[in-house]
């Protein structure tokens, strides 16, 4: 059997991370399955241009495209801009501080060139590695186990989609069939944070064939604190509803199997963001949550949630009953 010709684009949004980009390009240069690299600099203070770092298509072993945003627009806009430039049949979004493991090459060697919509694989998180483990965060680990997603490469049965759709960490790291994203209109929300919620959920909801691999094909080094987008706690967090609204509508159309997973996901997100968001924004955030739940949660959906997870229903009710201080209930 002759090896499949390289047919994978890596779209890399980068912001003020020249060193990370340099390391990642070094990794990619050793991956023979990569045919195209698209770097979108999101208005770094110093342009993160691969050419300035000494990278050429020849050195990379792949076509190299670079574009720079005139102003910072976030990773979602950068990913969408990068996707528009992709000519390869498959694409993966990979941040400049993400790292491939050796298993990524094995995964690509087995991945078909066509006939699937996306392939989900496992990640390692540096916070897990710091405790002597190797793999996803505990909550995601439990979802992998509940879904029985096991083995080097298999089809994900449709009945297991409601489990793995709840994965929260590194949702941009999937190998997509490029035309699936384009034909299904799946893209990132062009907001500063949470831009990947729509990409992740719409991918699962609109895919016909999902492949899943338990290979740990990427590792993520998490830096607590600092100016990374992940750590932002300002008004940009309130823009998450621009991502959640279209997903909520799609979930409602997808049927009752997704009601509970989406409720769990959103309530966990609200809880996490509430702890992060700046104190002066908390009342506004709570008001947006209440509005979101009131708008999207039908009585039927609430009844399903209450039957399956009464504690979650109770927490939703607390959110729905929230009133700003000084306002009579």
């Amino acid at each position: 059997m002759s090896p499949t010709p390289p047919d994978l684009a890596v779209v890399i949004p980068v912001w003020n991370d020249e060193a990370g980009l340099e390391q990642l390009l070094g990794q990619i240069s050793r991956l023979t399955a990569v045919s195209q690299v698209v770097v979108i600099d999101d208005a770094s203070e110093r342009p993160a241009d691969p050419a300035r770092l000494g990278w050429t298509a020849e050195r990379l072993g792949a076509d190299l495209i670079f574009a720079r945003n005139a102003q910072q627009r976030g990773a979602g806009y950068a990913r969408n801009r990068g996707l528009a430039k992709v000519t390869a049949g498959r694409v993966i979004f990979f941040d400049s501080d993400d790292r491939f493991t050796p298993d990524f090459a094995h995964l690509l060697a087995e991945l078909p060139s066509d006939g699937f919509d996306f392939c989900l694989f496992a990640h390692a998180d540096s916070r897990v590695a710091a405790t002597g483990g190797w793999g996803p965060l505990p909550d995601d680990e439990r979802l992998w186990e509940r879904a029985g997603a096991f083995g080097a490469l298999n089809d994900l049965p449709s009945g297991k989609v409601p489990e793995l759709i709840q994965l929260t960490a590194y949702p941009w790291n999937k190998v997509y069939r490029t035309d699936f994203l384009r034909e299904a209109g799946v893209r990132c929300t062009e907001i500063m944070v949470h831009n990947d919620i729509e990409l992740h959920w719409m991918s699962f909801l609109r895919a016909s064939r999902i492949l899943v691999s338990d290979r740990v094909a990427a590792v993520h080094v998490v830096h607590c604190g600092g100016a990374r987008l992940t750590n932002r706690n300002g008004a940009e967090r309130l823009e998450m509803f621009r991502a959640l609204d279209p997903v909520a509508r799609a979930v409602a159309e997808a049927g009752p199997d997704f009601t509970l997973p989406f409720a769990r996901f959103t309530m966990a997100l609200f809880h996490w963001a509430s702890g992060l968001i700046a104190p002066e924004l908390r009342a506004g955030f709570s008001a947006r949550i209440r509005m979101f739940l009131a708008q999207h949660l039908t009585p039927d959906a609430f009844a399903r949630i209450a039957a399956a997870d009464p504690d979650l229903a109770q927490r939703i009710n607390v959110r729905l009953a929230w009133q700003p201080e000084g306002e009579p209930a």
Partner: peptide, 8 residues
Amino acid sequence: SPQGRLLE
């Protein structure tokens, strides 16, 4: 025997 692994 998947790539890079021994046996399933």
